[in-house]
Nucleic acid binder design. Sequence first.
DNA 1: TGGTGCATGTAAGGAGTTACATGATTCG
DNA 2: CGAATCATGTAACTCCTTACATGCACCA
Lengths: 179, 179
Amino acid sequence: MSLPHAILTALLEKPSSGLELTRRFDKSIGYFWSATHQQIYRELGRLEQAGHIRALPSPVPVRGRRKEYEVLPAGRAELGDWVARSEDPKPMRSALLLRMRAAAMVGAPGLRAELERHLALHRGQLEEYRAIEDRDFPPERRRTEPDRLRHLVLRGGIDLERFWVEWLTGALAELDREE
Amino acid sequence: MSLPHAILTALLEKPSSGLELTRRFDKSIGYFWSATHQQIYRELGRLEQAGHIRALPSPVPVRGRRKEYEVLPAGRAELGDWVARSEDPKPMRSALLLRMRAAAMVGAPGLRAELERHLALHRGQLEEYRAIEDRDFPPERRRTEPDRLRHLVLRGGIDLERFWVEWLTGALAELDREE
DNA sequence: TGGTGCATGTAAGGAGTTACATGATTCG
DNA sequence: CGAATCATGTAACTCCTTACATGCACCA
């Protein structure tokens, strides 16, 4: 049940249309929560239904016509409740680690290449996030508490990508020692 | 579509009943793929249907009576195909990071406590995995290629937990600097 | 014989994914 | 006016989660 709260947060930061939200989820929001445009439009409908958000004044609501949403007080309250809730970390599911474990049983012709491919992907993601950090969090924007929190979250994304880059590098070295 | 392959891998390592599989997923397999017993029984049914596994000889199949499964050649082949496939890493979804970002918008009374709670959980998980490493991977079991692969996978789980322990520790220190 | 644990399931619903559909706008 | 692009959706499906149901074995 986190997607609606991700959307509420994004809309509080800046009222947006569905497509704008999709773009923001693709780039800057994606480092802590990902979503497709189908999910976003469905959830926008539900949030509007629930009275948590509303479409900004528009003459006639027509399919294909841009709709801008903003958060209503009820939506802000709901988000406040959710933030205060406790929630355990979801148990892990890594298809890559599973592949490695399966490879131990049935052999692994292309495993090395797959690890290298993932390494390249994580390196790319890391660069993207670092660029966002340079752009959105220059030193002077790390002072107020909200900015410090947002920067911390981005650091989470960056540090995780760095973790995978380092881990995959080590794993490849370990694989090489054997062959 | 990874759960069936997780089960095939587990059954290749050691033929098991549904409940035994559930226990193995809860403890040692959980560090790369998690699953509940409901998922497991459903998937065992599908795998049997597909001819990838079979229930070991039992007089009469009765509900409530234990069933042991083993992998058939077709299942091993299917797993081999899957291992050779490429798959991109799933984009991230962290409810904790999302909470922090939302807290930047609506305030965060209990956020520190929630971070500390997660820190304790990850510390606990880390200790469990380390115990598994001591028990299952003593130095002499790190020589053959399959063992080295399996150990590498466990290292992945351990290193990820260590990552979160360190990251959360740093985040808490960062939060303190402000107040 | 009745409870407790073991073992295997069913049912319902929520969340995410993939493929496709439709209207509006812009631009050559 | 035709094509590309912007923008908003629908539909179908798979997967996961949560709650509940049922049968067997043991043992006090």
